[in-house]
Amino acid sequence: MIAALGLVLFAATVVVTAQRVLPGAAWMRRAPRQGVVAWQVVTVTVPASLLLAGAALALPTVPSATDDIAGLLGACEFLVRQHYETPGGALVHVLGVLGAAGLLLRLGWSVVTEFLAVRRDRQRQRARVALVGRPDAVDGAWIVDEPRPSVFCIPGRRDQIVVTTGALAVLTPRQRALALAHERAHLGGRHHVALTVAAALRRAMPRSRFFAIAETEIATLVEMHADDRATAAGGRRDLAAALVALAEGTSPAGALAVNGGAAMQRVHRLVVTAPGLPLGQRWSIHGIAAALVAAPVLIAAAPALETALLDYCAAAFHA
């Protein structure tokens, strides 16, 4: 009971704290890759804690695997079970099992359907590009005749980078090369996987603001990471200029800003601030991330560990 309560409390604390501390955090803007990892850690540790809470409630009802082992070990198992006992008895156990199973099914279903939907959309768009576009002999990008300027990529095993003729008209060769490098960074960094998982979690918990914020933040951070990768050898202002040129488009009246603030932040960090974090800060981020992953497992195992510390049980465990 204590373990399950602890896990639920831990999950709630992570949600509340992350929502206050993480969105728009300055360090994430400077180190977007670490930022993506941080969001992934908090969004995975929350459902993992809830699953473990369900499992902890269910533990006392799991049929014993050690019926034949009499004596010391049997007694220890009894004690372990006792430590996971709940006042509500069987009903609480059943609810725990059902809750955990339901959550697991929901998450699994959401991830599977999201990946399938993305794959289907991609295949359709890839086939389309192959029909309406032509491959550029120089850099392998697909050129599509279209006055609205756009540069984008379609990930997958046979990935494509697409440039419209409208984009070619507004970008200098240098800007075009940087924009393509940005897209290649997306593909090389497998950013679409992070985005798909984030979208699946958000769809699995449609009423949770937490997962919606996480998805938006991850989407912004992978763009920043691709910006940094593309400009590893310089050209930050050129990339910013390319970004502005494409954002201006040709028919601004028809544009719909999905995340206009993100474009502003990207230009700002490209022309004003330098990316990168001091080593110490990077290590503390990794440390906190590791602790957040380990914490639910430790909380779930606490009653068992406690039992193991009893003298005669310790002997049995070491036997």
């Binding site: 756009s150 379609i154 940005h182 970004l243 494409l246």
Partner: peptide, 15 residues
């Protein structure tokens, strides 16, 4: 969906 990732979206004139 994450089927397609664009460099930047076209923004309204004032933005």
């Amino acid at each position: 969906t994450a089927a397609l990732m664009h460099f930047v979206e076209q923004l309204p004139a004032e933005e």
